[in-house]
Design a protein around this nucleic acid. Structure first.
Length: 120
RNA sequence: UCAGAUGGCCGGGUGACCGCGGGCUUCGCAAGAGGUUCGAGGAAAGUCCGGGCUCCACGGAGAAACGGUGCCGGUUAAUGGCCGGCGGGGGCGACCCCAGGGACAGCGCCACAGAAAUCAAACCGCCGAAUUCCCCAACACUUCGGUGAAACGGGAAUGGCAAGGUUGAAAUGGUGCGGUAAGAGCGCACCGCGCGACUGGCAACAGAAGCGGCACGGCAAGCCCCACCGGGAGCAAGACCAAAUAGGGACGGCAGGUUGCGUUUUCCGCGUAGCCGUCCGGGUCGGUCGCGAGAGGUGUGGGGCAACUCACAUCCCAGAGGAAUGGUCACCCCUUGUUGCGUCUUUUGGCGCAAGAAGGACAGAACCCGGCUUACAGGCCAUCUGAUGCU
RNA sequence: CGGAGCGUAGCGCAGCCUGGUAGCGCAUUUGCCUGGGGGGCAAAGGGUCGCAGGUUCAAAUCCUGUCGCUCCGA
């Protein structure tokens, strides 16, 4: 699972499709420079989430959820960014998994609609 | 037993499965895979001080300015930290708190009230001894109209006083006796205050013979004075490797015609401006190092009241870079409230047992170290103080 | 990592340096002018001066600590 590391890559993802679902926010954009068959993911938590302990914990839980779900659901050639929200650290893990799944499905539908609109 | 003071310590435990970061190691051309081992804190936090380290500046040294510190001694790499002592304040006490030099170096401020806020003075008041005047008037003189006038008493002016009153956070010693016209350290006694030989102590400071009739308000966390300390910046320090693109330099080749510029002007000549290739250095993205064996931890012994220090033995104990500890589960521990049963009780309710439920403090290394400050559920240990009860 | 500033009424600010009375504008409430609205006039209410200690007779103001926010430089 490749990881996003540069600030510019996070900013590009923020301009793509965004979906808020429960305790998380998901951002997706196309990444033409990465090799065929791969995708990348990044995690971020702002100061609104809490102090350093709360931010790190939120990112760890997002990483655990992503390692379970993204190999099954992610599309190749895209960057995914999971943004922690205030409830990310306290949400039950089953609920967190459900949130990420729902956000992925909804964002993929948004991606398809955008592509169709560009086609016509 | 209750209440409290001080110092120190811990800060969930055990196990199972799936995952994460570093070191070492085996396999592999490599990517990577396997094994093994280590993997956050007492505050890692705030960034309030002090140092190491690195670069910059500077002839040595010092001064000015600016900033900081501020009883004395010790400790330390160093400090504004810490330890011990002194002084002041608080507490019955154990003990706690204090930026705690200087107000005859100078400037400034002290609202309101009050007579007056430091230069002295006098609002109410007290006095009438001294000088002068007025009233009263014994008495004397008399032209019987008046005139002069002592004492006592009264009033006033020049004055004397600061005892008493009023204000205020703060008012220039307090009490008593003498003294006086009234008073006043004016005099005396005691207390207070100031200076202080001398004694003890490294010192801060403490004690104190004697002297002084008392003259000395507060604020320096107002400016300031004095003493001491400080060169500046910070790991994004700094060092190294180094892409694409653009630009620079050197060499070689092509063209050597025209044009511009320079050589003061003209002719000639020279240089420069073009394209291509090779090489070079600077430098950006990026990467590597800096980067963890240290003013280190633990133990024993010695020195010191202590902070601390010396010797020996022993241990290796995070090293990331969108940043390593997460997910699921079982048992135990603790806390909270709920329900049921038992028991005590007049009741509210207390205690015990059981059930199932919720929750488990503050908080995450980012170059390192010594302190300080702040946050923190709950718990443990030691020493000491006060009260009460029993022996 | 280094530096600077702010916090005062519901909102925006002054007062702080040089310590003694917390004030201004908008907003709020009430009354009046108007048939009503808008607008105007008059009056009133509203303050832990971010928090905790300290200095002082006295602190929004001075000092120390602390919390929150904003900005600047590398």
């Amino acid at each position: 699972m490749e990881r996003l590391r540069k600030r510019a890559e996070f900013l590009r993802a923020a301009k793509g499709v965004r979906r808020v679902e429960g305790a998380i926010t998901l951002e997706i954009c196309k990444a033409p420079e990465i090799p065929e068959g791969l995708w990348r993911v990044g995690f971020t938590a702002s100061r609104k989430v809490g102090n350093a302990v709360a931010r790190n914990r939120a990112k760890r839980r997002l990483r655990a959820a992503a390692s379970q779900l993204l190999p099954l659901l992610a599309r190749e050639g895209h960057d995914y960014v999971l943004v922690a929200r205030a409830s990310t650290g306290t949400r039950a893990f089953d609920g967190l998994l459900a949130d990420v799944t729902a956000a992925l499905n909804a964002a993929h539908r948004g991606l398809d609609r955008k592509k169709k609109g560009e086609g016509t």
